[in-house]
Simulated assay, not measured.
Amino acid sequence: MVINNLVDAVAKFCESTLANLMQPTPDKITEIRPGSLNRTELISEKTEKSEASYKRISIFKGCLPPKRQSENDDYPFVLVVPSAGTVDREFAHATVNIYCGSWHDGNEGYAEVLNIVQRLLIALSKIESSLDKRYIPESDVKWIFPDASAQAGAPKMWQAMITTNWKYHTPSNNLPFKDEYFKEKQYE
């Protein structure tokens, strides 16, 4: 539960940080639908770029939505995923990855995703003590931009990842310790 709350807090943080950043949306495909019997039916017509071709960044937690459930484009997106953690007597530690995805039809596509990354990095560096008055940032924030040839939809779909580490007090059940729980059974 606490880790889910951390993911929620990071997602809200990303949403508020990126609220005013508009990113281009992918062009719709103008090819004939695969398997279509109507050879003249196009998926959609390609249109000129306009204000409608830009949108706010969608924030997702855990995974991107299934493709058949949404007509909306996933790009641009931020995906918040918990990836690892440890627990000791006093603190729990969690690693949360923030995947950033952007689309651009041109040679400067990498700059679109790096705009998202840079805004998040600046905002993360400004967290003074804690996030949501509960989660304390640990160590340096790291980011990675994979080789462009490894990008899924290169050169139009670009992705980068930010790795954040957090610590928070370990939740306890607050039950009192009683001696009878620790007594060894006496054998005769």
Rank of each mutant, 00 (worst) to 15 (best):
V78L: 04
R119Y: 09
N72Q: 15
C63I: 06
S70G: 07
S53H: 07
K49T: 07
A52W: 00
Q69I: 15
E51V: 00
E71L: 05
Q118V: 03
S36Q: 11
Y54W: 09
N115E: 12
A123C: 09
N97V: 02
Y110N: 05
E108M: 03
S130C: 01
R56K: 14
K49I: 06
V117C: 01
T95I: 05
D132Y: 07
I127A: 11
V81W: 04
V96K: 06
E112G: 03
K49P: 02
E71N: 11
A111H: 01
L121T: 10
K49F: 02
V78K: 00
E112P: 03
S50R: 02
A123I: 03
G109Q: 04
F60C: 08
K49Y: 04
R56T: 10
S125Q: 14
V96W: 00
K67C: 05
P82R: 09
S102N: 12
V117K: 05
S58T: 15
T47W: 00
T86M: 11
T95M: 07
K126V: 03
R56E: 03
R119H: 14
I59H: 15
Y75V: 10
I98W: 06
L37K: 14
T40F: 15
A84V: 09
K46A: 10
I122E: 15
D73W: 05
L121G: 07
S102T: 15
I43T: 13
S70Y: 10
L42M: 11
L114T: 08
L37P: 11
F77W: 02
E51W: 04
L120M: 10
S70D: 13
K49N: 04
G109W: 04
T95Q: 15
Y99C: 05
P82A: 10
V113C: 08
S58I: 05
E51I: 02
Y110S: 08
G106L: 13
L114M: 13
N107Y: 12
A94Q: 15
D88R: 09
T95Y: 02
I59Y: 12
S70I: 10
S44P: 03
I116L: 05
Y54A: 01
W103N: 06
